[in-house]
Amino acid sequence: NRMHLLCPMNTSPHVNPHKSGHGIWEEFSHSFTPAVREVVEFAKRIPGFRDLSQHDQVSLLKAGTFEVLVVRFASLFDVKDRTVKFLGGNKYSVETLQAMGAGDFLTSMMDFSDKLMGLGLSEEEMSLFTAVVLISADRSGIENVNSVEALQETLIRHLRGLITKNHPNESAIFTKLLLRLPDLRSLNNMHSEQLLAFKVHP
């Protein structure tokens, strides 16, 4: 009855029965570290990010990395095929993952990915949206809220301009995109609960 780390950032959903909880955790950490580094590199390229205090840069990344990864890896969740692709390259059906213990969180991730991918955004639009996800002045621990807020507003303005330019006949896309932000917060909270459950019962 061991807990599984049913996260596509892992190479596979299967757990080596001979590995300790700590060993499983270390292997998992090894899998997601490159992706986290890429999020940091992405953040550095957001104009204005490096002008924020180092404290606020860390706070934004700590709070937002999971949400950025959800956006970045939304395509791993295939709603049509009802499969999830793990970093090891294999796809696993929703039914298989549910049999291994995946519950509402998986369903919510599939729903989110379906809604986001359904908007058909370009790479540039997705990248700007990802920047908006990361630069949020209401994250906990921000010391200079005004600076983060100013950067956030600039990014939202650019995103709106880009979406309006690229989709002149689809004015609802920008609104739909902003509605994904609270979805991401909700997924972030669910993810934290999942991590807590694993930490308590590895």
Binding site: K44, R50, V58, L61, K62
Partner: peptide, 27 residues
Amino acid sequence: FSDPASNLGLEDIIRKALMGNLEERPE
């Protein structure tokens, strides 16, 4: 467990990745 990011070791990875860039900056 109130700080899942720290529990994941995320903060350490983030700080190192950020610091790497700072070290590359010219004096």
